[in-house]
């Protein structure tokens, strides 16, 4: 199901944990699809000195978090902002297609953490980092069709209008 690089990062994730007095924290999550990630940053001289993650999710979500932290560590904030979800998936040498949208959120969490740091520095008050109840996210989060990648409407969550495929569960 997953390639060797993904399995390695899943089984031996790098930089797991929290940073107590983090300079920036970013959270993304979508329990409807299944994954939530939190990224903690320690910034020194506009550079990511330390980075840690906590993730609730499937194998690919954990591997993405681990790979992302390795990619971001030591980078300047400007460099880190350039890291995209696609870059992380590429560094992992690919993810299953149906996992690309829901599990590949690492860079989003990183960018939020950087934003959090910059907001704090500029004294912009924001209500964060938020730690909402899982189901509270459900309504405004998006899911994508595992077959054609088009966003799935909440009105008909079991059917992809774009490719006309049913999305109910797999058979036993």
């Amino acid at each position: 199901m997953y390639n060797e690089v993904v399995m390695d990062h899943f089984k031996n994730p790098r930089n797991v944990g929290e940073i107590e007095d983090a300079d920036g924290v970013g959270e993304v999550g979508n329990p409807l699809c299944g994954d939530m990630m939190t990224i903690y940053l320690k910034i020194n001289d506009q550079r990511i000195d330390d980075i840690k993650f906590k993730t609730f999710g499937c194998g690919s979500a954990i591997a993405v978090s681990s790979m992302l932290t390795e990619m971001a560590k030591g980078k300047t904030l400007e460099e880190a902002k350039q890291i995209s979800n696609k870059d992380v998936a590429q560094a992992l040498e690919g993810l299953p297609k149906n996992k690309l949208h829901c599990s590949n959120l690492g860079a989003d969490a990183l960018h939020m953490a950087i934003q959090d740091y910059e907001d704090k520095k500029a004294n912009v008050s924001r209500p964060g980092p938020r730690r909402q109840e899982a189901h509270e996210h459900a309504k405004d989060e998006k899911c994508y069709c595992p077959y054609c990648d088009v966003q799935i409407s909440e009105d008909s969550p079991d059917f992809c209008q774009a490719c006309q495929r049913e999305l109910s569960e797999e058979h036993e």
Binding site: L32, H135, D158, L167, S168
Partner: peptide, 23 residues
């Protein structure tokens, strides 16, 4: 029966029918 493991990435209709949260 996690959503992640099914092709659809949707939580099981059986478990949601029992009143379980998505998480």
């Amino acid at each position: 029966k996690s959503a992640c493991a099914t092709g659809s990435l949707r939580a099981s209709h059986v478990l949601l029918s029992l009143g379980l949260s998505h998480a």
